[in-house]
């Protein structure tokens, strides 16, 4: 994996988002893998990789600093600290000769922000039309959705905090929308 490349996050969090009802922080460099496996091979592949692949769309499994989310019937998104990954990616690559599957390193594709605070759902709902009540979007749920025009991956970390990631080129747009909302502008 490309460990010597410096990752340019392409966005900065303005001061107005760093304090107040919702505190926004830019998540540092992460490793991200997109794993596609046929549903029938899910258990066998997970066992060979030494991880758990949740079976149901929206479910996540977080263990030893690696978060694995099921985004579709045959698609998993794996994200976590950079150091934890060296084996996982190579193991998955080797497995791909045995199963119909693919693994892609998409580390540099996304930029993530973490939002924490009592009014966090309000900021997320500025661009995302999902029902964010705890009943409809419980802690641990992760799904692909939209933030206005930008596709995002939304993950509920706790009752009042979310991780939100989008493609790097959309990041200034996503953060801009949040800023405009906090400044009281109509968006």
């Amino acid at each position: 994996m490309s460990s010597d490349i410096v990752f340019d996050q392409a966005v900065e969090i303005p001061d107005i988002l760093k304090s107040g009802d919702v505190v926004t922080t830019l998540v540092g460099e992460r490793t991200r893998l997109s794993l596609r496996v046929k549903a029938a091979d899910r258990i066998a592949v997970a066992k060979a990789l030494g991880i758990t692949l949740p079976a149901k769309i929206g479910k996540t499994n977080t263990k030893a600093g690696i978060m694995i989310a099921c985004l579709g019937p045959d698609e998993w998104f794996i994200v976590g600290e950079k150091a934890k990954y060296s084996n996982l990616y190579n193991k998955a690559l080797k497995l791909s000769s045995k199963y119909v599957m693919s693994v892609t390193d998409v580390s540099f594709r996304n930029v993530a922000v973490e939002l924490t605070g009592p009014k966090v759902a309000e900021i997320v709902n500025v661009g995302c039309p999902l029902d964010l009540s705890l009943a409809a979007f419980p802690v641990g749920k992760c799904t692909r959705t939209v933030y206005e025009a930008a596709p995002i991956i939304l993950h509920r970390l706790s009752e009042d905090s979310f991780a939100m990631e989008c493609w790097r080129s959309y990041a200034p747009y996503m953060v801009g929308l949040m800023t405009a909302h906090v400044q009281g502008q109509r968006v």
Binding site: L71, G72, E75, R144
Partner: peptide, 12 residues
């Protein structure tokens, strides 16, 4: 009867 694509969701 029509097809729909959950493009920004499960991609099915």
């Amino acid at each position: 009867c029509e097809r729909w694509w959950h493009a920004n969701g499960c991609n099915m």
